[in-house]
Amino acid sequence: MYDLDDIAGGDERRAKALRDALHQLANGRSPLLREMANAVLKGDITLREAFASPTYSDEFTQPFRSFWARYEQMTPETRDQLAAERRGDWRS
């Protein structure tokens, strides 16, 4: 998992967050993301390779596209409120 440590810039909290996210994906609903997460966790592929792969890239980007479409429809006040709520989550 040296790739995760490199991506995290040596920050152990970020590396742990990446590993935790991969474990969540490995147990998630998407068979394709489960496959990818397990492959990364086992060291069969790196996270960078997974993101660069056409096999997995659409599966990664679709949730973001859905979020972004909703985000663009939000008022500035709602965006600020959402950001404030999320900042609290990252500090815990």
Rank of each mutant, 00 (worst) to 15 (best):
E12L: 03
Q24V: 12
W68N: 04
G43Q: 07
R34W: 05
L47E: 05
R70H: 11
A52V: 03
S57R: 15
L82Y: 10
Y56T: 05
E35D: 10
L22E: 02
N27Y: 09
R34V: 02
D3Y: 06
T75K: 01
S92N: 14
R14I: 15
A69E: 07
R29S: 06
A39D: 06
L22M: 07
D20F: 09
D58A: 13
A39G: 03
I45R: 00
L47W: 00
G9N: 03
G10R: 03
A84V: 03
Y2A: 01
P63K: 06
L25F: 03
R48W: 11
A39V: 04
G10L: 00
M74V: 04
A8H: 12
Y56S: 04
N27C: 04
G88N: 11
L18E: 02
N27T: 11
Y56K: 07
Q62L: 10
D11R: 15
R29N: 06
W90A: 14
E12D: 08
D44S: 11
D11N: 15
M36F: 11
A37Q: 02
A39E: 05
R65P: 04
L32C: 08
S53A: 14
R19E: 13
A26K: 07
D44R: 15
R48E: 12
S57G: 07
E49H: 10
V40Y: 01
I45M: 02
R79W: 10
A8G: 14
S30Y: 03
D5W: 12
D3L: 05
L47V: 01
D11G: 07
R79H: 10
N38L: 02
E35I: 02
T75D: 04
A26R: 10
H23T: 07
L22W: 05
P54S: 13
P76F: 00
S66A: 13
W90E: 13
A84Y: 04
P76A: 02
D6H: 08
T61F: 14
M1W: 11
G28D: 01
E72N: 13
E77Y: 02
L47P: 02
D6E: 12
A84D: 01
L32A: 09
A37H: 04
N27P: 03
P76M: 02
T61R: 14
S66H: 12
Y71A: 05
G10F: 01
Y71R: 08
L32H: 11
S92Q: 14
A37G: 03
K42E: 15
W68R: 03
E72P: 06
T61P: 01
T46V: 05
Q62P: 01
Q62G: 08
L18A: 00
D3E: 09
F64A: 04
G43A: 02
D3M: 06
A8R: 10
R48I: 09
